[in-house]
Amino acid sequence: MNDKKMQLIHAGMRLFGERDYHTASVQDIVSLAGVSKGAFYQHFQSKEEMLVSIYRHYFERFHADLHEAQFNQSRTPRELLIIAIQLQCKLVFEDKAFLCMIVKGIAFSHNQVLSDLFLQESVRSLKWFQDRITELYGPDIAPNSLDCAGMLNGLLKEYFFFAIFHNHPIDSTKLSEYLVERLDDLVQGILQKQTKPVLQSSYLHHEPTNLSDPYTLETSINRLRNWITTRVDDKQCSRALLQTLEALSAEMGKEQANGIIIQGMYNYFITLAKENKPLIEQFEQLFRSKVQHTQ
């Protein structure tokens, strides 16, 4: 992401958090960013698209850090859970402007693209924690793993609330270790009492209700990413598909995209998908016309 786009994102985030999304104008944003209106419209079609980009930027930053931590194969599932909580704390505590946007829930209920983005991010995050919990505690906890992931996520949000609204200082390292210890207690109680789960994993296969509506490229890529994360069981294949998708989308986002590289990554993704027809159909629907355009 280039410098001007980042300047605009930080300016928009600050204004949306400190003031209000609806009252902050494009002129206000470019004045604070120190760029022209022309620069704004080179990167965003509208203020609404910028809002979605802000959330996407932070969600992707979190997952990029998480994937980097996960590539270290010497780390145990327990260590990964602790790191994931620390990364969430870092995301929230280090940028108060983004935090203010989250708290205000800016334009959430009135923006279907943003609403869908939040739903997909929730599913993606829960699935990641669910998998780590099953890896850590074994197959016996699998039926309750989504409940455990949901409760862990809920506990973390409550600590965020104390840090934000009560200005309570919280050490992210201590908090992450403490919460995973509480997860130990939770899992032990569930296994001892053979508790029936409340949440079913089928929830994670939820699709947006308005699939026929037009989506931006970013939203469509996010939906495809979520589909891979939740429905491709082979972890090595899933990781390769996601990496190829990210590389393809990054290359296509360049002002002077290399058509040969794009075509190669496109073909490689189709090869990785093998006989997974629903995945191939979604992928081709999203990228076929754009790949042809670069040739």
Results as ranks from 00 to 15, higher is better:
A273G: 02
F287M: 07
A163H: 13
L248S: 00
L66C: 10
L126A: 12
D28W: 03
H293Y: 11
S115C: 11
C237A: 06
A240D: 14
I170N: 01
T219R: 02
L156G: 01
Q295Y: 13
L91W: 02
Y159E: 12
L191S: 01
G34I: 09
S289N: 11
A247H: 04
R223I: 12
G138S: 03
L146T: 01
Y178F: 09
T76N: 06
Y203D: 01
A257W: 06
T173M: 02
P208M: 10
V187C: 09
Q285R: 10
L66F: 11
N222L: 15
I261D: 00
D3H: 14
H166C: 13
Q256W: 02
I133A: 01
V123S: 03
Q292C: 02
Q88I: 01
T23C: 09
K174A: 07
G154A: 12
A257H: 05
L272C: 05
K196S: 15
N111S: 14
S238T: 06
H205R: 13
V232A: 04
K254N: 09
T173P: 05
G189W: 02
E255T: 13
L8Y: 06
K5A: 14
M6F: 08
D213Y: 11
H10Q: 13
G150P: 00
S36F: 09
S289H: 10
Y268A: 08
F161E: 12
R19D: 15
G150R: 06
K37L: 08
G264K: 06
A273K: 05
T23W: 01
E68P: 02
D171M: 09
Q120D: 11
K254R: 15
I106A: 04
E135W: 00
S115K: 12
E121D: 13
L32D: 03
T244Y: 01
E18Q: 15
L191R: 04
R225I: 01
G189I: 02
R61P: 00
R132C: 02
D147N: 08
D234V: 02
L126P: 00
I221K: 04
F62C: 11
L179G: 04
A97M: 13
T294M: 13
V123K: 10
L211I: 15
Y268I: 01
A24N: 04
A11Q: 07
I261M: 03
T134V: 07
T134C: 07
E94L: 10
T271A: 14
T173Y: 09
M265N: 10
F160I: 13
V103Q: 13
V180E: 09
H63K: 05
S201M: 08
W227F: 15
V30Y: 02
E94Y: 07
R239P: 00
E207I: 08
Q7G: 01
Y21A: 06
S46D: 09
S46P: 04
S25Y: 07
V30D: 00
I190K: 03
Q70A: 07
F283M: 13
P214M: 14
T216K: 07
S172G: 03
I270T: 05
E251G: 11
E18R: 15
S122T: 15
T230G: 01
S31D: 15
D95G: 06
Q88P: 12
I260W: 12
